[in-house]
């Protein structure tokens, strides 16, 4: 791979061909403000916060989607750039609702962070009256049109990570809004929700469970099936209040399915079984693990002795890990002595 040399803020940088100016700057430790840029997504270039000046070219360019070229002389900071960024940010804020106190995202919101970083003191423009539709593809995800900054991260994630394209931004200017263009294709995976920089897309399960910084983040493996997706659970007062995948770890690289993203409330459900139950005279009673295992072993041996091993069949669950499922079939074949073993193969 051939290397390209360029100058950023007076520093000589050498990066592989095909990288963007933003990547080259990040590699050098130079901070260029970004908003729509997301490391898991291809560059979007909608927010115009990452603009830089290139010597000898008219006007600033967006650094996130401009590839490096040999001998470029890039300036990331100047008064003109700062003024332009502030204006761009004010335009983005123009239609944003006064929702921080009630927004689930407030506290880990990219928009809040960048506004505070720039110290924006007023939104100098008058917004035009507008009406946006708050429909979304599925009932698991809620769209808050008045919080949306139309950065297109969700649209890009749906297209480039999932390859679905269930949502798109329709209309121009004040009319622009996020629309489920192919609602039937949506799998409710929540990829759009995980990349949303603001609280425009939130889960629709239950709101106001706690501020983001209140929860204790625990890195863990998804308990829903045997795939072993990595995620972070946020727990508050012994209750899971959210799923996060910002670290992009594991085989799933930050993506989850609908069950991993939204199916966490069963963890704290009151109706969950906490002890084994043994049925006596048509009624279940609580038992200890020791008693239940002894009873099961006794009954299995008795049935096997009386009717032979093929009188027993085993059915296991996709909620178990691959290793557990392997052990189960081994148990059925080697201990019980039957090939009658099956798996539900769905969740």
């Amino acid at each position: 791979m051939s290397m390209v040399s360029l100058t950023i803020d007076g520093k000589m940088v050498s990066v592989p061909e095909g990288k963007t100016i933003l990547e080259a700057a990040q590699q050098t430790g130079i901070d260029i403000p970004t908003l729509c840029f997301h490391k898991r997504l291809p560059p979007i270039g909608s927010c115009n916060m990452c603009i830089v000046e290139i010597k000898g070219r008219p006007g600033p360019v967006t650094s996130c989607n401009t590839p490096v070229e040999e001998g470029l002389d890039v300036a990331t900071q100047s008064d003109a750039l700062h003024a332009q960024r502030v204006i761009n940010l004010k335009k983005i804020l123009l239609h944003h609702a006064l929702d921080c106190p009630v927004c689930d995202r407030a506290g880990e919101c990219d928009l809040q962070n960048i506004v505070y970083k720039f110290g924006i003191t007023d939104v100098a423009f008058e917004p035009r009256a507008q009406k946006r539709d708050d429909a979304y593809a599925t009932s698991l995800i809620r769209y808050w049109p008045e919080r949306c900054i139309l950065c297109r991260r969700c649209v890009t994630a749906c297209q480039s990570i999932k390859g679905i394209g269930a949502i798109d931004i329709i209309g121009e200017g004040d009319e622009a809004r996020l629309v489920p263009v192919a609602a039937d294709k949506c799998k409710s995976c929540g990829e759009c929700l995980s990349v949303c920089p603001t609280g425009a897309l939130t889960e629709n399960l239950s709101r106001r469970k706690g501020r983001p910084w209140m929860g204790k983040r625990v890195k863990t493996t998804c308990g829903y099936c045997g795939c072993g997706c990595q995620l972070e659970l946020s727990a508050l007062e012994n209750r899971v209040i959210g799923v996060h995948t910002e670290t992009d770890d594991g085989v799933n690289q930050g993506s989850l399915c609908v069950k991993g993203r939204f199916g966490y409330e069963f963890i704290g459900d009151e109706n969950r079984l906490k002890t084994p139950l043994i049925k006596e005279n048509g009624q279940f009673r609580e038992a200890s693990w020791e008693e239940a295992l002894d009873y099961t072993a006794k009954r299995l041996s008795a049935i096997k002795d009386q009717f032979g091993p093929d009188s027993i069949a085993g059915l296991t669950s996709a909620r178990c890990t691959n290793e557990e499922n392997f052990l189960f079939q081994k148990f059925m074949r080697a201990v019980i002595g039957t090939n009658s073993v099956d798996h539900c193969a769905r969740l």
Binding site: K90, L93, P101, L111, Q112, G119, I120, D122, V123, W213
Partner: peptide, 17 residues
Amino acid sequence: DVQNDISALIRRFMMHT
């Protein structure tokens, strides 16, 4: 301002959190 301007609301929120 906080009741009328999103940038003021954001700044107040960020200042105190």
